[in-house]
């Protein structure tokens, strides 16, 4: 099934990507090609096959509940595009 431009636009909002009309056009074409390509997975009979999310035979990995030093606040904020020495700052967010 082909993705429409509207669907691609919806996905772009979910992914928080602004696409220009040209980019949307190209993205729609390319995504459709890739989706069409991956559709060949349908050929594989996967009846009764368990999905493999992890290639690992490992379970129950925990750490002890111990406090270790956090970053100095200055360090934590150092890479932030906008901060006031206490908080990260963002455009106003309405609740």
């Amino acid at each position: 099934m082909a993705l429409t431009k509207e669907e691609v636009e919806k996905v772009a909002l979910l992914a928080r990507l602004r696409l220009s009309p040209d980019e949307l056009e190209l993205m729609t074409t390319q995504l459709n090609k890739i989706v069409e390509y991956v559709e060949q997975l349908r050929e594989v009979d996967t009846t009764d096959v368990e999905p493999l999310a992890h290639p690992l035979p490992v379970t129950n990995v925990f750490r002890r509940d111990e406090v270790r030093p956090s970053l100095p606040r200055e360090e934590a904020l150092r890479n932030a595009p906008d901060h006031d020495d206490e908080f990260f700052l963002v455009p106003p967010v309405l609740e």
């Binding site: 509940d65 111990e66 406090v67 270790r68 956090s70 934590a76 206490e86 908080f87």
Partner: peptide, 20 residues
């Protein structure tokens, strides 16, 4: 004592962005 996935302190009321 600590957070779910890291060793920062799990405590209410500390100065902002100090348990990170």
């Amino acid at each position: 004592q600590s957070k779910l996935f890291c060793a920062c302190r799990n405590r209410f009321g500390d100065p902002p962005n100090t348990n990170v």
